[in-house]
């Protein structure tokens, strides 16, 4: 005899998974996270403002001291024909030197400080693309470089009689150069693992290269191998074009200098974006 077992109700089919979106959700703040870029930028600018004795007054004092020493030791006070031309030649280079070191310091310092204090996560965890975080930092570097250049330029132009032939060109060169060294500062900040590494790159690479790139002397007058090596660094083109904006004197046609500057800034930007994307020395 078979007992009719009550029929088990058929098991419910497992609930269907929610349908996968066919495409990635659009970032709800639009294609570019402008707010995020602005916040990264503003954070760096607050840091710049807080450290103004070091970031603004320090470079100013430094450049004025160089200018005074050079004009007293080599310049018009010596009453030689060469001495009279020293200051108009050196002054534009010194202004650009202040701008470009300031821009590099800004981005290198902000990345290093975040890495050393362990709050780099604040930059990596928000929904920012690598290029967006990078843009915020580079924009801050550019702005601090230009702001830092204002007192230096005023001080130099008021104490010396250097003509300003083409202010627009000067501005363009300053913007391109501080973008370039701002990205270089990003690389320094990514590469350095201790504060001394950063100091070493500044002391052994950036400042010597900038000093030897024609700030103080015509590249053509330099001894034999040096005058060719110097043109391998884009800073030499920057200083040449910047000087052209003041005294009109230049070795390389200005448009070539601008092209070299823009090209190398772009290349460095892409390189830094790649490093950011793979998390080079940023993510464990």
């Amino acid at each position: 005899m078979t007992v009719e077992m009550p029929r088990q109700p058929p098991p419910l089919p497992p609930p269907l998974p929610p349908p996968l979106p066919a495409f990635r959700l659009a970032r709800d703040f639009g294609r570019v996270h402008w707010g995020g870029i602005w916040t990264v930028f503003r954070r760096d600018m607050i840091m710049f403002r807080k450290f103004w004795p070091i970031s603004l007054a320090g470079p100013f004092l430094n450049v004025m001291m160089y200018l005074m020493i050079l004009s007293l030791a080599l310049g018009p006070e010596r009453d030689t024909a060469a001495g009279a031309q020293v200051i108009p030649f050196i002054a534009p280079g010194l202004i650009l030197f202040a701008i470009l070191t300031r821009a590099a310091e800004s981005s290198a310092f902000t990345l290093m400080l975040r890495k050393m204090e362990g709050d780099i996560g604040e930059l990596l965890s928000p929904p920012l693309l690598p290029g967006e975080a990078l843009a915020g930092i580079a924009l801050a570097a550019l702005t601090t470089g230009l702001i830092g250049g204002v007192p230096v330029a005023l001080g130099v132009l008021l104490t010396t009689d250097v003509p300003v032939a083409n202010p627009l060109l000067a501005l363009v060169v300053a913007v391109l150069t501080s973008t370039l060294t701002g990205f270089f500062g990003v690389w320094i900040g990514l590469w350095s693992q201790r504060w001394d590494h950063m100091a070493a790159i500044f002391g052994f690479v950036l400042i010597p290269v900038a000093f030897l790139s024609g700030v103080f002397a015509r590249v053509a007058d330099m001894p034999e191998p040096l005058n060719l090596i110097v043109w391998a660094s884009p800073i030499a083109y920057a200083i040449d074009a910047f000087r052209a904006a003041f005294t009109g004197e230049h070795t390389i046609p200005v448009w070539i200098s601008l092209a070299v500057l823009a090209g190398s800034a772009l290349a460095l930007a892409l390189f830094c974006r790649y490093l950011f994307a793979i998390g080079y020395r940023l993510k464990a």
């Binding site: 080599l74 060469a82 010597p208 000093f211 030897l212 103080f216 002397a217």
Partner: peptide, 18 residues
């Protein structure tokens, strides 16, 4: 030492033909 040498080089370059 490196910075000192750099200063000297800068001065020598800035002196130019002098």
């Amino acid at each position: 030492t490196f910075s000192a040498v750099l200063y000297v080089v800068v001065f020598v370059l800035a002196l130019g033909p002098d």
